[in-house]
Amino acid sequence: MNNYTIFVVEDDRAIRSLIATTLEIQGYKYEVAMNGKSALMGIISSKPDIIILDLGLPDIDGVEIITKIRSWSDVPIIVVSARSDDKDKINALDAGADDYLTKPFSIDELLARLRVTVRRLNNQNSHSNSSDKNIFINGDLKIDYAAGCTYLNNTEIHLTPNEFKLLSLLAKNVGKVLTHNYILKEIWTNALPYDTQSLRVFMATLRKKIEPDTSNPKYIQTHIGVGYRMLKIDDTIK
């Protein structure tokens, strides 16, 4: 039995039943809601560990629900929606969603996204009682946040201040898709010269320094038109 409770918000009965059955088979505890109003009430009262959310609900748009939840909780939110346009994905992720899965989807992919989210929660829980929160290790990559140093295969690599900020932001959100707009605001705030094209340039130079093969990135995954995600290499991640 998985220790995490998942709240499913889906108005389509067939899809809701499919997701619920899958979660039950996998040993997850779960609750369901068919519209936004009941979802918000249920989430407030039950405090789930993960939310699976459809955007096209009959009463409240899913992006509005994400915004409301983010005003008081950082619970991971996985969007499962028929909206496949990049703009819809960006809006949901910018509002605070952690991941985005487009319908029709495979159950295997949904479970894979859940496993990534569960690992993130496990990492956060293990760090809550850890005194060493300044070190990030993912495969052969190591980041010492306090010292401002980055290592690959135990060898220090030189990163510019902006490259280090970019890498650190992705590492602190490992497994989560970060949109271009989110990254730009977090790293450069209102600095107008830095736009999406500039971000791509910084990403290209960063990848040359940390990726064994830049044509097949190992650490940083591109979501075309949306943003980037730091991939989790193995279960030894800290």
Rank of each mutant, 00 (worst) to 15 (best):
E64K: 14
E64V: 03
I65P: 00
I66K: 04
K68C: 02
R70W: 01
W72K: 12
W72M: 13
D74F: 11
I77T: 03
I77D: 00
I78R: 00
I78F: 07
V79M: 03
V80A: 04
V80F: 06
V80I: 10
A82V: 06
R83E: 03
R83C: 03
S84F: 09
D85H: 12
D86Y: 14
D86S: 14
K87R: 13
K87I: 15
D88W: 09
I90S: 01
N91Q: 12
N91V: 10
N91G: 00
A92G: 02
L93H: 02
D94Q: 08
D94V: 05
A97Q: 02
D98T: 08
D98K: 04
Y100G: 01
L101N: 00
T102M: 08
T102N: 04
T102A: 08
T102F: 10
K103R: 12
P104W: 11
P104A: 11
F105W: 05
S106N: 03
S106V: 05
I107T: 07
I107M: 04
D108T: 15
D108P: 00
L110A: 05
L111V: 11
A112M: 11
A112G: 00
R113V: 08
R113Y: 02
L114E: 02
R115P: 00
R119A: 04
R119S: 07
R120M: 12
L121W: 10
N122S: 09
N123H: 14
N125K: 14
N125L: 15
S126G: 04
H127E: 08
H127G: 13
N129V: 09
S131C: 08
N134W: 13
F136K: 07
I137F: 06
I137A: 06
N138M: 09
N138C: 13
D140F: 14
D140V: 09
D140M: 11
L141N: 01
K142S: 09
I143R: 05
D144Y: 12
